[in-house]
């Protein structure tokens, strides 16, 4: 119960800044919407998209809005800039509570609030504007989708924590952060579904962690994966999670010795 209570205190903190959450959500919302307009235009001019219909693409991008808001953690900026570079880490280091769990409790409410906005938009377009959006309805497969989503978020959170901690070694962590942003954009499926990639590029993508954070949870919710494929992806996600946990622990143990908080 102690952990739940701490989580709710952090939730209050994020809820107090819901206006900022909404503005950030708009960024997650507008990019897929623009891409959807592009695909709609292409469909009107007679283009075909392999086995994907325009309705599939609409579902994909609407689910992408939710997935981006809900699953893509942005904790690296806080860790690198506020905690490490500006000395905010000091506060956490003298508290008898895990830093990574506090950061998880700090970040998750933001994802939940923005994900909630995403679901509202999804419902608005589905029932308000009558968009045909196909999603998985089989309860057992929906459960697997939820597991996949949670695992995707865990991957994203741990990966971004490691990225943030890189500021303990680098003067300007932003270069690395921007590079990861570009890779995410391409390989997590933000631009288009991996289905449309060249086979070699697709092969590279599935060797990277990014599609397991956003792309696979989306197509699982779309009903494009069967149970066995979903279980296989969840297992791969957990291999990544275990790898990230090991890396995080090593990075933290070594990095925290470098923390100086000079002048703080």
């Amino acid at each position: 119960m102690r952990y739940v209570r701490i989580f709710f205190y952090y939730f209050q903190g994020a809820f107090a800044e819901r206006g900022r959450s909404f503005v950030w959500f708009l960024i997650s919302f507008l990019n897929p919407l623009i891409l959807l307009l592009f695909w709609s235009g292409a469909a009107k001019s007679g283009a075909t998209f392999g086995q994907w219909t325009l309705s599939d693409l609409a579902s994909y991008y609407f689910l992408l809005i939710i997935a981006d808001a809900l699953l893509d953690a942005h904790i690296e900026e806080t860790v690198a800039r506020i905690d490490i570079q500006e000395g905010g880490l000091t506060k956490y280091l003298v508290q008898p509570f895990s830093y990574v769990i506090q950061k998880l409790f700090e970040e998750s409410p933001w994802r939940m609030i923005q994900g909630f906005f995403g679901i509202l938009v999804f419902l608005l377009f589905r029932f308000g504007f009558g968009f045909v959006i196909s999603i998985q309805t089989d309860p057992s497969l929906v459960c697997l989708c939820v597991v996949m989503m949670i695992s995707g978020y865990a991957m994203s959170f741990l990966f971004k924590m490691i990225l943030g901690l890189s500021a303990l070694w680098t003067t300007d962590y932003r270069g690395l952060s921007e590079l990861v942003g570009v890779l995410m954009l391409i390989f997590a499926g933000f631009v288009m579904p991996l289905e449309f990639f060249h086979p070699i590029l697709k092969q590279i993508a599935i060797l990277l962690p990014f599609p397991y954070i956003i792309y696979f949870p989306i197509i699982a919710f779309q009903g494009k994966l069967i149970a066995i494929e979903m279980i296989k992806i969840i297992l791969i996600q957990w291999v990544w999670i275990c790898g990230f946990i090991i890396i995080y622990r090593k990075v933290w143990q070594r990095g925290v010795r470098l923390y100086t908080g000079i002048g703080q």
Binding site: I6, Y9, Y10, G13, A16, G88, K91, P96, Q264
Partner: peptide, 22 residues
């Protein structure tokens, strides 16, 4: 250095610390 939540009353930070320090 500031450890208080900026946008909330200080009592919210006190309650958080109550839980953190058990």
């Amino acid at each position: 250095k500031n450890q208080l939540w900026w946008d909330l009353p200080a009592q919210e930070t006190f309650l958080l610390n109550k839980e953190i320090y058990e």
